[in-house]
């Protein structure tokens, strides 16, 4: 746990502990749960409010979800640029120029969301 990467190593330790915990817990579950449960007809059908399921396991979903995923990528990447900027922008050596540059960047993205807005992508009908 020494040096700069030491604090990241602790996160690795945490993941390791998590894996151990889940292995133990799933093992305990395997031992504790009924070993030979009854398996009548229809028990392993997907849930359909007590009716026999009709059709496959797929459902039609709105294409809108896909557009939202794209918008998310847009803003997630924006955040990636905003975070380091937010930490340093008021240190000496930066200044008004830094803020104006970021304003231009955010304005371009705002134009994107405005476009989506006007195209009625954001309206859930």
């Amino acid at each position: 746990m020494e040096g700069y990467l030491g604090s990241y190593a602790t996160l690795g330790l945490l993941l390791l502990a998590g894996v151990l915990f889940f292995t133990a817990a799933f093992g305990a579950n395997r031992v504790l749960r009924p070993s030979a449960p009854a398996d009548p007809f229809g028990k392993r059908e997907p849930y359909e409010c007590g009716l026999d399921p009709v059709g496959g396991d797929w459902a039609q979903a709105q294409i809108r979800y896909y557009v939202y995923a794209y918008l998310y990528v847009l803003f997630a990447v924006e955040s990636v640029f905003l975070f380091p900027w937010a930490v340093v922008f008021d240190r000496p050596g930066f200044g008004v120029t830094t803020v104006v540059e970021m304003a231009v960047f955010v304005a371009v993205l705002a134009l994107g969301i405005l476009y989506a807005w006007r195209k009625n992508v954001l309206r859930w009908s």
Binding site: P46, E48, P53, Y65, Y68, A69, Y72, L82
Partner: peptide, 27 residues
């Protein structure tokens, strides 16, 4: 992975909601 209609729709809704509010939270 549940191979059932309700969970599929629930999962989609959930993810759309979570990513939308994730952006607001990050900002």
């Amino acid at each position: 992975a549940s191979g059932s209609t309700y969970p599929l729709l629930g999962g989609l809704r959930s993810s759309a909601q979570m990513i939308s509010y994730e952006v607001a939270m990050g900002l």
